[in-house]
């Protein structure tokens, strides 16, 4: 593009396009917010905002994990099944075996991280397609959950465990605090730490990453471990929310997580992802659900709108970043 060797490459029009390419989705979130605030009176209460954040916290955790995996050029379809497995493990640990709640949660989450390791290992070691690997492990994990629970729901009556979802830190619900903490952590990993750079480089150009001394093998494994870990955390919150440990929880949750990533500007080709982007994606999906609920739109339409949003987000990205790709 820089044919004459001039110092500045960008014109004003380019600057606008770059800006929209980077922050366009934020503008959309802002417009949605304003529109909902003006048109829906019940939307603009503090309690509704906190409610939205609480609702999106579960998808939010999963989406953050998904985003690092997609950033390496992969995908993790096993996240929903991992949530269900956590539920069934918690049912056994807390209700059947009467184990300590904190210990049970920690064990279940670590087990999910280990499953993430398996996903990552299969992808990185044998160069298998992430889609196929995680599609298979999804079936295995879901089946495992059914075996553990004998396909029966256990009611999670433990008062301490219920606090995971219902507990408050001051005026803020515990799941929102968790989402906040995870957002900060993910920001640090992706933008301030070596691992984040390696993840983005691996997804951006694997060979160039190798030629720069990046261990692509461990980077990919780390991404899937993060995804497994976070879906484990999401599973704990979800189990507490539903108060029921059953193997058919969180079916299709990977879709919402992928949607949040894509709306938030995560490139499916890998190499591009930002934490604020994914947060915006998570919030947009939350707004779609919440806003349409408040207006009284049938939930079937919400799904349609979500689908349209994804296509629109990808189109926006394509148009704005056409020259850069």
């Amino acid at each position: 593009m820089d044919k004459k060797g001039s110092k500045s490459i960008y014109t004003n029009k380019d600057e606008l396009r770059l800006f929209m390419g980077k922050y366009g989705i934020g503008v959309i979130l802002f417009v949605m917010l304003i529109a909902l605030i003006i048109t829906v009176p019940s939307f603009r209460t503090t309690s509704n905002f906190i409610n939205i954040l609480k609702q999106v916290s579960i998808n939010g955790m999963i989406a953050y994990g998904m985003c690092v995996v997609i950033a390496t050029g992969g995908i993790d379809l096993a996240v929903g099944a991992q949530c269900a497995l956590v539920a069934c493990l918690l049912g056994q640990f807390i209700m059947k075996m009467g184990m300590n709640v904190l210990l049970s949660c920690a064990l279940a989450v670590l087990f999910c991280a280990a499953l993430g390791f398996v996903n990552g290992f299969l992808v990185a070691k044998f160069n298998m397609f992430p889609f196929v690997v995680t599609l298979s492990t999804q079936l295995i994990i879901r089946g495992l959950a059914q075996v553990i629970s004998s396909a029966q729901a256990i009611s999670m009556t433990n008062a301490q465990f219920k606090l995971v979802y219902l507990g408050m830190v001051g005026p803020i619900p515990f799941p929102v605090v968790m989402l906040f903490v995870v957002t900060i952590l993910m920001y640090m990993i992706l933008h301030w730490m070596k691992l984040g750079r390696y993840i983005l480089a691996t997804g951006g150009n694997e060979k160039a990453a190798i030629a720069s001394g990046v261990s692509v093998f461990w980077t990919k494994i780390a991404a899937y471990v993060i995804s497994g870990f976070l879906s484990g955390v999401a599973g704990v919150i979800l189990t507490s929310k539903t108060s029921s440990a059953q193997s058919n929880l969180a079916v299709g949750y990977e879709t919402d997580a992928v949607a949040a990533c894509v709306i938030g500007g995560t490139s499916f080709a890998g190499g591009v992802a930002t934490t604020p982007g994914v947060l915006i994606g998570i919030l947009i999906i939350g707004f779609i659900y919440n806003g349409m609920n408040l207006i009284g739109v049938n939930s079937y339409y919400q799904t349609i709108v979500k689908g349209i949003m994804i296509i629109a987000a990808v189109l926006l990205d394509l148009v704005m970043n056409r020259k850069n790709r």
């Binding site: 480089a201 951006g204 990046v214 190499g271």
Partner: peptide, 14 residues
């Protein structure tokens, strides 16, 4: 290079 990433990230990668 990882063409999608910035000059800064590419230079400091190794």
């Amino acid at each position: 290079l990882c063409l999608l990433r910035s000059i800064r990230e590419n230079v400091s990668l190794p």
